[in-house]
């Protein structure tokens, strides 16, 4: 897909308050920056994420991801496993309607990983920019 240099994707990131969200705060303390058009939404656990939230996010965004605790390290034991399952369910639905499944993602990190947080968000942002605008976006 051709990359429009001016294209600034809109991203919705759901973050577990025990890892991703704290890592974002850590990044802020370290004065690390990440793209502006990334909207952060706090979850009590990555397991709270649902196909429905991803789908609603993609009605207006170009990509969406969930930040979860490291594997085997979920405070609620299996929240991150459930999150992973919902990412793959969403990917399947997107594929069925002809939208790239890469527009939904999951990343694992810990609370003290401010640098990793910006790396993940920047990386996902760049990947979505590469993909171009979400062809199924409803609210433009």
């Amino acid at each position: 897909m051709s990359t429009n240099q001016n294209f600034q994707p809109k991203i919705v990131v759901f973050a577990c308050e025990n890892s991703g969200w704290l890592a974002a705060e850590h990044a802020a303390e370290l004065c690390l920056s990440y793209p502006e058009k990334v909207e952060m939404i706090k979850l009590p656990c990555s397991g709270k994420i649902d196909v429905l939230f991803f789908m609603k996010a993609l009605e207006k965004a170009d990509g969406t991801a969930v930040l979860a605790c490291q594997k085997e390290n979920c405070k609620f034991l299996k929240g991150n496993v459930r999150a992973e399952q919902r990412v793959s369910q969403t990917g399947k639905i997107l594929k069925e309607i002809g939208i790239e499944e890469e527009r939904v993602g999951i990343f694992y990190l810990a609370a003290n990983m401010g640098h990793k947080f910006t790396e993940i968000v920047q990386g996902f942002y760049d990947k979505i920019r590469e993909l171009g605008p979400n062809p199924g976006k409803v609210i433009k």
């Binding site: 993609l58 009605e59 639905i93 409803v138």
Partner: peptide, 21 residues
């Protein structure tokens, strides 16, 4: 309710992609 929400998004996105909102 949840499945209704998911399907609504699917339909809206699929048709938006087709250019026939």
């Amino acid at each position: 309710e949840k499945e209704t929400g998911i399907l609504s998004s699917e339909l809206a996105m699929a048709r938006s992609k087709e250019g026939r909102p």
